[in-house]
Design a protein around this nucleic acid. Structure first.
Length: 231
DNA sequence: CGGATTTGACCTGCGC
DNA sequence: GCGCAGGTCAAATCCG
């Protein structure tokens, strides 16, 4: 992910005034010890592009925080440059929004159950490479929020498996990558701490769970109580 | 012993 | 075209 693409995303972020929090939080957020506050919403037309994201911020007492600037989001990031964004309330970190999500319009969730969510196990070299490039651009709906917590991984009711950790530039803390362990559920999340305030944890969910949190230990398709599907 | 985590390598996209 | 940075894979290792 490059900060350079942030500008393509930022105009789609809006600050919601406190009295305009009409959008219900998705179940994972409702399960958190303290519900994060909605700060930003990505007002994409869901039907059109299949994207719907929010930015949230909270601490353990439910206090509302403006999202502080993150130092690590690329040379061209608006956050780094202090560019004004639409209705800024702090800066938009390049989490959950760095990619050009609008290209996901047609094939947004057609990840076809292959061994990897975007690469595909049956991909052949020449013919599929172009598709792979496109697929790389595809992004699931994302929800980004910030909490003040001692622990990196918040208990959101789902079971996660860590599949990677990466040191990000200009950040003191590594970013961790998690995948939902439920079969047929490709939801991922990234967790990192602010370098400016190590108590603050940025969590980004990507994708929609195909099961409910309580259904997490089961295998199968778990069609009921989709966390994000109606969101 | 099986599942989860760690970590280095690899791949891809993007900016210059 | 090249280099950098983010994201993912997969073998090795750890842990219950």
């Amino acid at each position: 992910m490059e900060g350079g693409q942030l500008e393509t995303c930022l105009p789609n972020l809006y600050f919601l005034p406190p009295d305009n929090h009409s959008m219900p939080l998705p179940p994972p957020f409702q399960l958190l010890p303290c519900q994060p506050k909605l700060l930003h919403q990505m007002p994409f037309d869901q039907e059109e592009v299949g994207i719907h994201g929010v930015m949230l911020s909270s601490d353990n007492c439910g206090g509302l925080y403006p999202l502080p600037e993150l130092p690590s989001f690329g040379k061209n990031s608006a956050a780094a440059l202090g560019k004004p964004t639409v209705g800024t309330a702090g800066s938009m970190p390049n989490i959950g929004g760095g990619e050009e999500v609008t290209k996901a319009s047609n094939e947004s969730t057609t990840c076809n159950g292959s061994s990897t969510w975007w690469r595909g196990s049956t991909m052949t070299a020449a013919g599929e490479k172009g598709k792979m490039k496109i697929r790389r651009k595809m992004r699931e709906p994302r929800f980004c929020f910030q909490t003040r917590s001692e622990v990196d991984v918040l208990d959101d009711g789902y079971k996660w498996r860590k599949y990677g950790q990466k040191v990000v530039k200009n950040s003191l803390h590594p970013r961790s990558y998690f995948r939902c362990t439920h079969s047929n559920c490709r939801v991922k999340k990234r967790v990192e701490r602010l370098s400016t305030d190590c108590r603050m944890v940025i969590t980004t969910y990507e994708g929609r769970h195909t099961h409910s949190p309580c259904d997490d230990t089961n295998s199968g398709d778990g069609e009921h109580a989709n966390c994000f599907s109606s969101f």
